[in-house]
Each structure stands twice: as C-alpha cells, then as structure tokens.
Amino acid sequence: MKMSTKRRINTILSEIILILISFIVMMPVILAITMSLQHPTEVFSYPPKLFPSSFYLGNFPKALQTVNLGRLLLNSLIVAVMITIGKMITGVFAGYAFANFRFKGKRIAFAALFITLFLPAETVMILPLFLIMKKFGWVNTYWALTIPFMASATNTFLMRQHLLTIPKELEEAAMIDGAGPMRYLWRILIPLSLPILAGMSLVNFVYAWNMYLWPLIVTMSDEMKTVQIGVKMLIDAESANNWGIIMAGTLIALAPTLLLFFTVQNLFVKSLVRTGIKG
C-alpha cells in the first residue's frame, strides 16, 4: 500500500519534471513559430509574446525572397542526396570486399581506411582541401560540395560488420547455383540488409544536410549556397529589422529534417545507436 502511494507520487513528480523539460527543450522552436507569425508591426512588441496572437503568414514569402531560400533548399537536397547515395554505394562495395573476400593487401587496405577516422576532411583539412578544389576548378560547384564526402570509413566498417553476421552457407549455395559475386550482392545481400541500409542512409542524409563550414568556404555565389548558410545570411540581413522574417526562414530550413525525424524516429534512434555516427 505504502509502496503504491510512493510510486504514484513518483510518477506524478516525474511527469511534471518531464513536461517542464520537454517545454524548455522545445521552447526555441515554439517561440520561433510565434515570432514567425507576427506582423512586422508586432515584432518588437513588449512584452515579447509566448504564443502567437495573430496569424500573419507574410513573413514566409518574404524570407523566401530575401535570400532565395527555395534555391538554397534545392541545393541542400541535391547535396545531401548525392552524398548519401555516394556514401552508400562506396560503403556497401568496400564493406562487401572486407567481409566476404580474402585478398592480398587486405590488412593494409583496412588500416589505410582506418587512419581516415583521424582526418575529418570537412573540418581539420579545409585549407588544403580548398586549395585542391581550386586546382580542379571545382570551387563553387556541386562537385566540391559532394564528391569529397562520398566515402567514409564508418559506413564501410558498419557494412562489413553487418555482412559478417550473414551465414556463409548462403554464399556457398549461391555460388553452387552459379551466381557471381555481384549477383550475390545484388540479389541476396542487399535485400537482406534493407533495414540497415535505410538507417544508415537517414543518418548520412542528416549529416550531409547539416554541413556548414565546408559549404561556407567552397561556395562563392548565392545560388550555390546551401540552406544552412542561408539562415546565417538571413540573420545578417534582417537581425536589426524583422526577426519575424528570420524565424520564418529558420522554420522553413529546419522543417525537412525535423519532420523526417518525427516520422521515422524509431528507425533514427536505432540506427544512431547502432552506428554511433554523429549527426
């Protein structure tokens, strides 16, 4: 009896704390929505509003015009999709090579790939990478934004680890049936790996979508920038005037990944824990 009262109080207390914390964590997004729906004349009203009192939508088209957000969103989508596809293809191929084949130089190749974990190109090596892009004439192109990130040790190791769990008998049976290595990969291994591939793609997509430093450096013209740079351009352009426009633009920019996360949260969480890739 005593135990159950205690438990009930504990539950109520936990509920209150969790509601409070959920509210605090979501606060920036809630207040961004409030601000984005305010008419320019209300933006500087005091006290600042917690919940929208008006339902003014004019800030959204203005945000789209101020920095051409539509184009920037398209760029982010192209970049994130290209990087994700590239990384998945190279990762599946290399993981397959390491998991299912014996070959000369395997250990050296593995070590060579392993070392790249120390060298995050998009941060530590921005300067030399930029100079190389200049040599290639790739500055301010989609190539520079995508190709350098199309392979990663993490994806390869994950794929390898996963393929090692698939019984070898399957491969032997396929070989007896006359299937070559590519046919076995395409017909058997990939269909067996779909959930893992989906999870990896999601994490890679969010990672690519959120890249900031590299696009900032390697894009020159406004129409090549990504949406992450766009929000910074918005804040630089409008912070003295109209925060409604900035917040409208910010909401447009955060909607794709946030909605994606809300719809497939479980898959996200599972693959994040499995992969440990930082988004």
């Binding site: 964590v25 994606l260 996200f268 969480v269």
Partner: peptide, 11 residues
Amino acid sequence: IFAPYAISPAI
C-alpha cells in the same frame, strides 16, 4: 527531448 538532434548546429 530528442528533437534538437534533427536540428543543425547553424539553426
């Protein structure tokens, strides 16, 4: 509480 994971550092 997980939501900020899907929000980029810039945002």
